[in-house]
Nucleic acid binder design. Structure first.
Length: 257
DNA sequence: ATGGCATCATTTTGATGA
C-alpha cells in the first residue's frame, strides 16, 4: 500500500491538481493539510468520483485537514482529545489491512511564526499534546502512521544552505520532533538512501524552487511494524512544477503488505 | 533591516504562512 501527505495550501485553489495527482498516483491514503475551507465546503463528490472516501475537518481561512482513502475510514477522531483547540489541525482514521487495522493520523503542526511569538509557545504546547496522543494511540494501534506538515526540519541536512531563520529549526522544535521518534516512530524518508538537499517545501519568493532553497518539513512517521514493511519513501517534486503550485509537494511511503 | 509570494478576507491593506 502507498500512503502520502501533501500540504495543499488551499484545497479550493488546488483541487484540480489534487485530483490530477491522485489519478497519476492512486495511493491508498492521502493526507491533506491547509484546506483553508469550511467543513461544509469540502469537495466530497470530486473524490467520490475517483472511488475515494474522505474524513475531514475544516474552518474558514486557515488550517483544515483531510484523509482521502480507498478503504472506508473507521473510528474517525477529530482533533486531539488531550488538547482542546479551535484550530482544525488533526484527524485520525482506521483502515483494515492484511496485517490488521492501520491507524492513519494526519497532522498540520503549527508554524510558530518566530521564537518570540505566542504562536511559538502554542506550537510547543501542541507538540507536547501530540506526543501524549501518539503515546496513547500507539498502545491502541500497533500499526500507526503519522503523516503531515510538522513545520520542523529535523536536521541540518533538511535545510538549504542559505536559510537564515531560527523558526522550524530551533533546538526546542527539533527536540519536540525527536520526542515523537522516541515513542518508537521512524522518519520513513531516512530509512533509505536519499539525494542530498531533498526538501518538501520551497518559498514562493526569491525563486525558492528554482534555487532548490527549501526545507524538509513534511514527514511520514511509522511505528515499528510498519517501518519493517516500508520499502520506499520518496518526495514527488512534480506538483511543485505545476502552474499555481502549492509551496509544499507530496511525500509518499510504500508499505509492502 | 526589510521584503520578496500566495491565499484569504475585506479591501486599496492586513494576517498568516515558513
Amino acid at each position: 500500500m502507498k500512503i502520502a501527505t501533501w500540504n495543499v495550501n488551499s484545497l479550493k485553489v488546488r483541487l484540480p491538481q489534487v485530483i490530477a495527482w491522485l489519478q497519476e498516483n492512486p495511493v491508498d491514503a492521502l493526507c491533506l493539510q491547509e484546506l483553508k475551507q469550511e467543513t461544509d465546503k469540502f469537495p466530497l463528490d470530486a473524490f467520490k468520483e475517483l472511488g475515494y472516501q474522505c474524513a475531514w475537518t475544516g474552518q474558514k481561512t486557515y488550517n483544515g485537514v483531510a484523509i482521502i482513502s480507498k478503504q472506508t475510514p473507521l473510528d474517525i477522531t477529530l482533533n486531539n482529545p488531550f488538547f482542546p483547540d479551535e484550530q482544525q489541525r488533526l484527524i485520525s482514521i482506521t483502515v483494515p489491512s492484511a496485517i490488521g487495522d492501520i491507524r492513519i493520523i494526519c497532522a498540520y503542526c503549527p508554524n510558530g511564526s518566530s521564537l518570540e511569538s505566542d504562536k511559538y509557545t502554542y506550537k510547543l504546547e501542541w507538540f507536547r499534546a501530540l506526543h501524549q496522543y501518539l503515546e496513547q494511540q500507539l498502545q491502541k494501534y500497533p500499526n500507526l502512521a503519522v503523516l503531515g506538515d510538522y513545520n520542523v526540519a529535523p536536521e541540518d541536512r533538511d535545510v538549504h544552505d542559505k536559510y537564515s531563520g531560527d523558526i522550524l529549526v530551533s533546538p526546542s522544535e527539533r527536540e519536540a520532533f525527536q520526542r515523537l521518534l522516541d515513542l518508537g516512530l521512524s522518519d520513513s524518508f531516512r530509512l533509505f538512501e536519499q539525494e542530498e538537499k531533498s526538501f518538501s517545501w520551497w518559498d514562493y519568493r526569491m525563486m525558492g524552487f528554482r534555487r532548490n532553497a527549501g526545507l524538509r518539513i513534511d514527514h511520514i512517521l511509522l511505528s515499528r511494524p510498519l517501518r519493517d514493511l516500508c520499502t520506499e519513501c520518496v518526495i514527488d517534486k512534480q506538483p511543485r512544477r505545476n502552474e499555481q503550485p502549492s509551496d509544499h509537494t507530496p511525500v509518499i511511503a510504500t508499505i509492502t503488505i
